[in-house]
Design a protein around this nucleic acid. Sequence first.
DNA 1: CTTGACAAGCTTACGGCGTAAGTGGGACCG
DNA 2: CGGTCCCACTTACGCCGTAAGCTTGTCAAG
Lengths: 204, 204
Amino acid sequence: MGAREPLSRARVVTAALALVERHGVEALSMRKLAAELGVEAMSLYNHVKNKDDVLDAIAEVVFADIALPAPTADWRTDALALAHAFRAAALAHPRTASLSLTRQLGYPALPVTEAALALMTRAGHDPEQAVHASRALLAYVIGTLLREINSTTDPDALRHTTLTTSGLPHVTASAAHLAVCHHESEYRFGLELLLDAVALRVAG
Amino acid sequence: MGAREPLSRARVVTAALALVERHGVEALSMRKLAAELGVEAMSLYNHVKNKDDVLDAIAEVVFADIALPAPTADWRTDALALAHAFRAAALAHPRTASLSLTRQLGYPALPVTEAALALMTRAGHDPEQAVHASRALLAYVIGTLLREINSTTDPDALRHTTLTTSGLPHVTASAAHLAVCHHESEYRFGLELLLDAVALRVAG
DNA sequence: CTTGACAAGCTTACGGCGTAAGTGGGACCG
DNA sequence: CGGTCCCACTTACGCCGTAAGCTTGTCAAG
């Protein structure tokens, strides 16, 4: 019965992340988290302020995992790379990513925000337009990833609700949307669309 | 001591919506909701399956409140009108809207989905591209509204976390983002950007 | 008028939750 | 060796969602 590795904030956060990825956010409780670490619930509070602190901490991990691409000569390449890195990080921890995209994170998200802003400035926007454009880019990325993650987690939510509704007034749209689900290529499609528009706006 | 108005699903949902708008989602409990209606918690279950059912129901309200604009000759006008209607409905119930944008809603969101799809088809896209483009539009709308709603609900979350962080390595970006906060005009900016790109893609 | 079914409220009860507050022992420093 | 501090444990409180059962008012059929 040797001494076990001592608890630490890092160990708590890691365990919380694992628990959320395995069973979803709603399954995360301080008691279960403690059990996971072979410890009583209240011991966690020596390393963590409260449950919200834990949620913030795991949400940050996703942003921390975004490998910001080094800027190249072409802002457009960089934009695609940034968006791709964002998506990769989100898909690496899908259930946690829902949290990250939803929660209001200030500082942890800043590097990404700033990268997007720098990018749009380099593209030739004036400062105010650069802010607008970078936010548009991030809004698209976040909106798309939210949808993608939800449909991955719960793949036939739409199909189910449509089929159990009698009368089916709107099958056409749902069928069309279900038929097209190559997430990655769709992501690129919207991205290119947006970047085309940015380029156009700067040129014209 | 006359007989009070009997409970009904509609009354429950209305009260839940009001409670959420007043005190936030985390303040919604079956007990408080019942108290609001002058009733005991378990009575609610005669009209509602469970708490999740309540949450779904209030989330639907936002979509139901989107006044779908009648199609005109110009798809672009219609796209702006749709986005504007979406935004109006979301801002009318901001705290509930977070739920609506986050939760996976199948059927209730369908009219909007279909309107966007129809619009992109009318713009000249082939069916598959129309799906992609409509999803891009909705992703932008949802991503933007999430940000807007969160920053309205909790206006200085970013400022606070930045200021309390010593070292402040990234003040530039956050300051720039804070300085620009005319939500409505920003919304239009990104929207026009996206629609320009759609028009371009169809023409070229 | 009686009866019995049914809808819709109330009561009780259970297990789980987050966390405030206090306890105790082991490690380290004087 | 005594003191101090860290850190895990224990206890306890009030809230939660909801299963199960009970009560009461309403109303149609006999």
